[in-house]
Computed example of a mutant assay.
Amino acid sequence: MIRGIRGATTVNENDETIILQATDELVHEMIRQNDIRPEDVVQVIITVTEDLTATFPAKVLRTIEGWMHVPVMCMLEIPVPNSLKRCIRIMMTVQTNEKQEHIHHVYLGESVKLRPDLTKID
């Protein structure tokens, strides 16, 4: 079965180090909460809001052991007026036997506002 795992986080400024640290924290939390192995990942799509231009957040995945061959793509989030600023979103598509209701979507920082109904504190 293929499932999507959502994640998002926010940063305080458009800085390469800060963006990469926030992305690293988010990806590792998604991995931890869902027991993800790189060989089970079909693809990872990362979007950023238009105010984040300092780096490609996908660079983080290349530093995680075993993730070198996971297909990753960065894109620009649709710039909807009054939407959450300085936000990094991830859609990780994985092969899993977990039921949809057992998938743990991860929202950190101000991104908990996006889907408070999916936010779980472990």
Rank of each mutant, 00 (worst) to 15 (best):
G7C: 08
A8E: 09
T10F: 02
T10Q: 01
V11G: 03
V11K: 02
N12Q: 11
N12C: 05
E13L: 12
E13A: 15
E13T: 14
D15L: 13
E16N: 09
T17G: 06
T17Y: 11
I18S: 06
I18F: 04
I18W: 03
I19T: 06
I19W: 02
Q21R: 15
Q21V: 11
Q21K: 15
A22W: 12
A22S: 14
A22I: 10
A22H: 08
T23Y: 04
D24P: 05
E25V: 11
L26E: 04
L26C: 01
V27M: 13
V27F: 15
H28F: 13
H28P: 04
H28G: 00
E29F: 09
M30A: 04
I31Y: 06
I31M: 10
R32W: 06
R32S: 10
R32F: 11
Q33M: 14
Q33K: 12
Q33L: 14
N34A: 11
N34I: 14
D35Q: 15
D35C: 09
I36S: 04
R37E: 14
P38M: 11
P38G: 10
E39T: 15
D40Q: 12
D40M: 08
D40K: 11
V41Y: 06
V42R: 07
V44R: 01
V44K: 00
I45R: 08
I45M: 05
I46E: 00
T47E: 04
V48M: 03
T49G: 00
E50C: 04
E50K: 12
D51M: 02
T53C: 09
T55Y: 05
F56H: 08
F56L: 10
F56V: 06
P57C: 01
P57I: 05
P57F: 01
A58R: 01
A58K: 05
V60Q: 03
L61I: 13
I64D: 07
E65P: 00
G66C: 09
G66F: 13
G66A: 09
W67C: 00
M68A: 12
H69W: 14
H69S: 14
V70Y: 01
V70A: 01
P71K: 05
V72H: 00
V72T: 13
M73L: 12
M73N: 07
C74I: 07
M75N: 04
L76C: 02
E77M: 07
E77Q: 14
E77C: 00
V80K: 01
V80W: 02
P81Y: 09
P81W: 08
N82C: 09
L84R: 02
K85C: 07
R86T: 03
R86A: 03
C87Y: 01
C87P: 03
I88W: 03
R89F: 04
M92K: 06
T93A: 11
T93D: 09
T93K: 14
T96M: 08
T96K: 08
N97C: 02
E98S: 14
K99N: 05
K99Y: 04
Q100C: 05
E101V: 11
H104Y: 09
H105S: 08
H105L: 10
H105I: 14
L108Q: 13
G109C: 11
E110P: 01
E110H: 11
S111E: 08
V112H: 00
V112K: 03
K113H: 05
L114C: 06
L114P: 04
L114E: 12
R115A: 15
P116Q: 07
P116M: 07
P116A: 04
D117C: 13
D117S: 15
L118I: 10
T119D: 06
T119C: 11
T119Q: 10
T119E: 06
